[in-house]
Simulated assay, not measured.
Amino acid sequence: MVNDYKKYELYGKPLLQKIELTAPFKFDFPVAEQACFLYVLEGEFQYQQDDEEINIPANYALFLNCVNSGKQIHNARPHHHCRIVIVTFYPEILKKIYDRELPLLLQRPTNLISNQSNKKLNNDFLIQKYVEGLLFYFENPSLVNDDILVLKLKEIILLLAQSQSAESVQLILSQLFSPTSYSFKQIIEANLFSQLSIDQLAAQNNLSVSSFKREFSKLYNDTPANYIKNKRLEKAAELLTVSDQRITDIAYECGFNDLGTFTKSFGDKYHLTPTSYRQEQKR
Rank of each mutant, 00 (worst) to 15 (best):
L62P: 06
L106V: 07
D51T: 15
L196R: 09
I247R: 07
K26F: 02
P103L: 04
E253S: 15
F193I: 08
L158E: 13
E42A: 09
F125M: 11
Y227H: 11
E132Q: 12
S217Y: 12
Y227T: 01
T223K: 12
A166K: 14
Q175N: 15
N145Q: 07
L201R: 13
P103H: 05
V169M: 09
F177W: 07
F27G: 00
D124N: 12
V40D: 06
D244F: 13
L159I: 12
N205R: 04
K13V: 12
G43V: 03
K7C: 08
C66A: 10
Q162K: 15
S168H: 12
C66P: 00
A58C: 09
L135G: 00
S217N: 13
S183H: 14
S165E: 15
K18N: 12
H74I: 06
K7L: 01
F25T: 01
L160Q: 06
N115Q: 11
C254V: 08
L21C: 03
K26Q: 05
F25H: 01
F63C: 07
T180E: 09
E215V: 11
L153D: 02
I156H: 02
N65E: 12
I93C: 10
I250G: 00
V2T: 11
L196A: 14
G267P: 01
F27Y: 08
T263R: 13
A236N: 02
F125I: 11
R232H: 01
F27H: 05
I198W: 06
Y8G: 06
N145P: 05
S194T: 14
F125A: 15
Y227P: 01
Y98M: 01
I73Y: 06
S265Q: 09
K154E: 01
G133F: 08
K95T: 06
Y137W: 07
L102A: 02
Q200A: 15
A32V: 08
N230S: 08
Q245A: 08
D146K: 07
H81W: 05
E92W: 07
Q195L: 15
